[in-house]
Deep mutational scan, measured.
Amino acid sequence: EFTQISGYVNAFGSQRGSVLTVKVENDEGWTLVEEDFDRADYGSDPEFVAEVSSYLKRNGGIKDLTKVL
């Protein structure tokens, strides 16, 4: 089950073990991109978060400006 990723309007994530599946949706709710990120592939949590965040930004993730990150 996908849940909204904090700080984004149209990005959602689903966690299974160490694998986080993220997706970005358009205004109609269609999935634009979907990608798996395995936490085990990264040396640290900040590196993992930075990679996921960068992916979302590159692929149309819209920041939720009503929330302070």
Rank of each mutant, 00 (worst) to 15 (best):
E1H: 12
E1Y: 11
E1G: 13
E1F: 12
E1S: 13
E1N: 11
F2E: 04
F2Q: 05
T3W: 13
T3R: 14
T3V: 12
T3F: 14
T3D: 05
T3Q: 09
Q4G: 06
Q4H: 08
I5Y: 07
I5M: 08
I5P: 04
I5R: 04
I5S: 04
I5W: 06
I5H: 05
S6R: 12
S6G: 08
G7Q: 05
G7H: 05
G7N: 05
G7E: 05
Y8T: 06
Y8K: 06
Y8D: 03
Y8R: 06
V9T: 11
V9Y: 07
V9H: 08
V9E: 04
V9Q: 07
V9K: 10
V9G: 04
N10R: 08
N10I: 05
N10D: 01
N10H: 07
N10W: 05
A11P: 00
A11V: 13
A11W: 03
A11R: 00
A11E: 00
A11M: 03
A11H: 00
A11Y: 03
A11I: 03
A11Q: 01
F12R: 04
F12E: 00
G13S: 13
G13Q: 13
S14V: 13
S14L: 14
S14E: 04
S14C: 15
S14H: 09
S14A: 12
S14T: 09
S14R: 15
S14N: 07
Q15L: 14
Q15M: 14
Q15S: 08
Q15H: 07
Q15P: 04
R16W: 07
R16Q: 07
R16H: 08
R16P: 01
R16K: 10
R16S: 06
R16Y: 06
G17C: 07
G17K: 03
G17D: 03
G17F: 06
S18W: 07
S18N: 07
S18C: 12
S18T: 12
S18L: 06
V19H: 02
V19P: 00
V19W: 03
V19A: 01
V19M: 05
L20M: 06
L20A: 00
L20R: 00
T21V: 08
T21P: 01
T21F: 05
T21I: 07
T21N: 02
V22H: 01
V22W: 02
V22D: 00
V22E: 00
V22R: 01
V22P: 00
K23V: 08
K23F: 06
K23I: 09
K23A: 03
K23L: 06
K23N: 01
K23W: 12
K23T: 08
V24G: 00
V24L: 07
V24C: 05
V24E: 01
V24D: 01
E25C: 15
E25A: 12
E25G: 05
E25D: 05
E25V: 15
E25R: 13
N26K: 04
N26W: 05
N26A: 06
D27M: 11
D27R: 10
D27A: 12
D27C: 15
E28W: 11
E28Y: 12
E28T: 09
G29L: 04
G29Y: 02
G29P: 03
G29F: 04
G29Q: 04
W30A: 13
W30C: 15
W30H: 13
W30F: 13
W30T: 13
W30K: 13
T31D: 02
T31H: 04
T31S: 07
T31I: 12
T31R: 05
L32E: 05
L32D: 03
L32M: 12
L32H: 06
L32C: 09
L32K: 05
V33H: 11
V33T: 08
V33S: 12
V33L: 07
V33W: 14
V33I: 09
V33C: 15
E34R: 10
E34A: 10
E34S: 12
E35L: 08
E35I: 12
E35T: 12
E35K: 15
D36G: 06
D36H: 12
F37C: 02
F37E: 00
F37R: 01
F37K: 01
F37L: 03
F37V: 00
D38R: 03
R39H: 04
R39V: 02
R39Y: 06
R39E: 03
R39T: 03
A40F: 07
A40Y: 07
A40K: 12
A40T: 08
A40R: 12
A40P: 00
D41W: 08
D41S: 09
D41G: 06
Y42N: 01
Y42G: 01
Y42P: 01
Y42M: 01
Y42W: 06
Y42D: 00
G43D: 11
G43K: 11
G43I: 08
G43C: 13
S44C: 06
S44N: 06
S44W: 02
S44K: 01
D45E: 10
D45N: 07
D45I: 08
D45F: 13
P46Y: 15
P46L: 15
P46G: 14
P46R: 14
P46M: 15
P46Q: 15
P46F: 15
E47Q: 07
E47G: 02
E47M: 06
F48E: 00
F48H: 00
V49M: 14
V49C: 15
V49L: 14
A50R: 10
E51H: 12
E51F: 11
E51N: 08
V52S: 00
V52F: 03
S53K: 13
S53P: 00
S53W: 11
S53T: 14
S53D: 14
S53V: 14
S53R: 14
S54N: 13
S54C: 14
S54K: 13
S54E: 14
S54V: 07
S54D: 13
S54P: 00
S54W: 10
Y55W: 15
Y55L: 03
Y55F: 15
Y55T: 01
Y55A: 03
Y55C: 06
L56D: 00
L56H: 00
L56A: 01
K57N: 14
K57P: 03
K57E: 15
K57S: 13
K57I: 10
R58V: 07
R58K: 11
R58F: 07
R58P: 02
R58N: 10
R58A: 11
N59S: 07
N59C: 13
N59T: 04
N59V: 10
N59M: 10
G60K: 03
G60Q: 04
G60A: 05
G60T: 03
G60D: 02
G60I: 02
G60P: 01
G61F: 05
G61E: 01
G61C: 15
G61V: 13
I62L: 10
I62Q: 07
I62Y: 07
K63I: 14
K63Y: 13
K63D: 07
K63R: 12
K63H: 09
K63S: 09
K63W: 12
K63Q: 12
D64H: 07
D64A: 10
D64W: 09
D64Q: 08
D64Y: 09
L65N: 11
L65R: 08
L65K: 10
T66H: 11
T66K: 10
T66F: 10
T66Q: 10
T66V: 09
T66N: 13
K67Q: 14
K67G: 14
K67R: 08
K67Y: 14
K67V: 13
V68A: 10
V68G: 12
V68K: 09
V68D: 14
V68M: 11
L69R: 09
L69E: 14
L69F: 09
L69T: 13
L69Y: 09
L69H: 13
